Simulated assay, not measured.
Amino acid sequence: MKDTERDDELNQDDELYEHYSFQAGKGQEPLRVDKFLMNFIENATRNKIQQAAKNGNIYVNGIAVKSNHKVKANDEVKVLFEHPPHEYLLTPEEIPLDIVYEDDELLVINKPAGMVVHPGHGNYSGTLINALIYHFNNLPLNSNERPGLVHRIDKDTSGLLVIAKTEHALNHLSRQFFDKSSEREYVALVWGNVTEDEGTVTGHIGRNPKNRLQMMVFPEGDQGKEAVTHYKVLERFGYVTLLSCRLETGRTHQIRVHMKYAGHTLFNDERYGGERILKGTTFTKYKQFVENCFKILPRQALHAKTLGFAHPVTGEFLRFDSEIPEDMQEAIEKWRNYAKHQIDN
């Protein structure tokens, strides 16, 4: 397999590493971001900072800015690059793993929400990779030198991941993910009433040029990479819908971006606007109900429920299924009861 193909499935070319992060004080007077950073970064030259801004590596409140952008009180200023900082180290950490299957070639892990798969974005410890290198020796390195990693899921998405323990397994599994012979099914709670019982969302996905922490759909296909998501309605609750989503491709934030593009942003997906009340009434009781659901499920409502692939040695097709986590189940049950109450009345 070509490295570019494996990178495509892992979406490593979309990764950004946080090198610096600063919060402007409450009394901060408007100040050019290049001058602001000069006050904080030791040994930095203004020319280097301006070049970083020109390359789209300086962000204020999550949006890439030019060097003359004025930093104001309470702004969050970050410098992000596509390469890790010098102090980046991959160290073993004794973190428990929920292993649902293991043999000499591979293991399947049920990742909890909140765990980052690999270091980056300011998360340089406590990741799945840190845990893996503690529990397992000599995991094969993928093309980005990530031990055992075949694919990944977002920090606040829960669910199943397969990890390769041998070079042969890594290559064999990576090929399956690239040629779309693996199976990946997610359960998602989305805003709005999805009227079609099933359907397909297509549209190239690439980085949003106005906010590089987000991805977006390029419907003309002139940018980004091809992406295909198949969905099926599991339950309708009026203002939200429970979906099964099957990935044909594996792009960064694919389900989150495709569902927003289709007009059905994931419930409580803060990065894509799902933490706002997007559907429903203006009644105070309804708003309180939704806010209670947000508290129960403080993340995007997305779970990687089913994972299937051919074993790299035996050829047997293995399929694994995981329970929807308690936080997501509780939020779904609240919506189910709310919808039933609306019908009864």
Rank of each mutant, 00 (worst) to 15 (best):
N47E: 14
F309M: 05
G114T: 04
E82L: 07
V190G: 04
D269N: 08
L242G: 04
C293R: 05
E220F: 11
I163R: 10
H168W: 13
H69K: 08
S182L: 08
L173F: 14
P298D: 03
D321Q: 13
K210H: 15
Q300F: 08
G221I: 11
K180V: 07
V233Y: 01
I163W: 11
H258I: 07
I95A: 00
N193L: 11
K70R: 09
D321E: 15
K78I: 10
F36G: 04
P85K: 04
P325T: 03
N144I: 00
T249V: 14
L141T: 06
G250V: 11
L16I: 08
T127I: 10
T195N: 13
F317G: 00
W191L: 10
N193P: 05
V194P: 06
P147Q: 03
E82G: 00
K35T: 04
K334E: 13
E323M: 12
N110W: 10
S143T: 11
P30K: 08
L247D: 03
N208V: 09
E105Y: 09
H121Q: 11
E15H: 07
G224H: 02
L149V: 15
L141R: 12
G114Y: 10
V117S: 06
G120C: 10
G62I: 09
V240M: 01
A262H: 10
Y186K: 10
V313C: 01
L16C: 01
T281N: 03
A164E: 05
E93T: 03
K111P: 13
S143C: 13
G120T: 07
H253C: 08
T202N: 09
L97F: 09
L132S: 01
N39K: 14
A331V: 15
Y261Q: 06
V194Y: 05
H303W: 11
N137T: 12
L31M: 13
E198M: 08
E105C: 02
G203Y: 12
K35L: 14
R212N: 09
